[in-house]
Computed example of a mutant assay.
Amino acid sequence: MSSTRSARKRRTARTLWLFPVPALALYLFFFAYPTVQAVQYALTDWDGYSATFHTVGLRNLTRLTAHDDVFRHAAENNLKLTLTVVLVQTALALLLALYLARTTRASTLLRAVFFLPTVLSSVSVAFVWRFVYDPDSGLLNSAARAVGWGSLQSVYLGDPSTAVFWLALTQVWFHAGQMTVVFIAGLQAIPRELYEAADLDGAGRWTRFRYVTWPLVAPATGIVVAYTTVQSFKAFDLVLGLGGNPPGPALDILSTRIYTTFSNDEFGYAAAQSLVFMALIALLTWVQRRTLRRA
């Protein structure tokens, strides 16, 4: 009987090893293999459709880092967008979560209201906010004229110095409710006994937040910051909806710049841009995690 039981356990163990195979196959086919191909194409001058191409070594990366001012400007726009969205959206989502953490009818309704924009498509959001920002008949300028604040009118997306920040505002409106839900889940996981102990010690609101809430909500904060960073780098459809195809220099970010390069039949160069894009996201995420661990 013992030998039969051992044989059955070995067969079960071998069977269990088969369960990860479908997921591993999908990962290798849709992520690992394309990544290896991107590295190969980044070292060539392939145009995307010719049967032949030449290996150019690191020429694409040299051109990218030393001579491509357009890509550098797109990277600057993306960093401005990311920094603004991460700071504003994280702070706003945390404030909303602190206000809505209690389970009441009003807070439940408000959670649904704030979460609603997240279920909309990016293109729909872009066209709605394109109307809001329209300098002639848009909601913001029309409201300013209606209340006699005509001096506050602006061209919004037409101003190269501020366009990326209006894009950031749209991004925050789009996803702040989603991040609020993440923070609410983190806040509700904090044991109530800790707050009761802080109250017995005479701690005020700020002290409770600084020494109880903030340290214990840090895992949720890490999720929000990392996800927001990736969202800001992948705001492709939102940018195209607001700025057109291709967007102007004021709204051009890395994802749209890579797309434009692909559209210009420079597949090898676009692959090199994609590798730098991936490396930049990985670096920023790593820096953010290290910073949040020390906070």
Rank of each mutant, 00 (worst) to 15 (best):
R210K: 06
P135D: 04
V125Q: 07
L81G: 06
S6C: 03
A75E: 07
T55V: 11
L275S: 06
S151Q: 12
T118C: 06
F267C: 05
D237I: 01
A7L: 06
L280S: 14
G244D: 01
P20G: 10
P20T: 04
T285G: 12
D68W: 09
G186T: 07
T285W: 08
I258N: 03
N264H: 01
L251G: 06
L58K: 04
V225T: 05
S3F: 05
N60Q: 00
R210C: 10
A144F: 15
S255E: 10
Y27W: 10
Y133C: 13
K234G: 01
V36A: 14
V125E: 08
G222R: 11
A91S: 14
F115P: 14
L200W: 00
K80R: 05
G158I: 00
F174P: 04
V212K: 06
V172L: 03
T213L: 07
A42D: 06
Y99P: 12
G241W: 00
T4Q: 11
T229Q: 10
Y269H: 01
S50F: 01
R290Q: 09
G177W: 01
F277G: 03
D136Q: 15
T103M: 02
T213W: 10
T207I: 12
W46V: 02
F267T: 14
W286T: 15
T90R: 00
A250K: 00
F127L: 12
F174S: 10
V287I: 15
R293Q: 09
S124N: 15
A144N: 09
L92K: 05
T180Q: 02
S107R: 09
A42S: 15
S121G: 12
T260L: 12
K234H: 04
L24H: 10
D68V: 04
T82D: 14
T228E: 13
I190Q: 03
L95K: 13
V125C: 06
E266F: 08
P117I: 04
D47W: 00
L98Y: 07
G241D: 05
R257M: 04
L26V: 11
S255C: 03
F262L: 11
L116R: 08
Y133P: 10
A197T: 13
Q153M: 12
F183V: 10
V164E: 01
V225Q: 03
L24I: 14
D265F: 15
I281K: 14
N141E: 13
Y41G: 01
A126P: 08
Y195M: 02
T90V: 09
D136L: 15
T52C: 03
V119K: 03
A143K: 06
S122H: 09
R59K: 05
L284A: 04
A75N: 05
A279Y: 13
A38L: 00
S151M: 09
T44M: 03
G158H: 00
R59P: 02
Y41Q: 06
Q273Y: 02
A197P: 09
V128W: 11
A7G: 10
I184R: 02
Y227N: 15
A42F: 02
G204K: 09
L81H: 04
F127R: 01
W173F: 04
Q178T: 13
G202Y: 09
L64H: 12
D69G: 07
S50H: 01
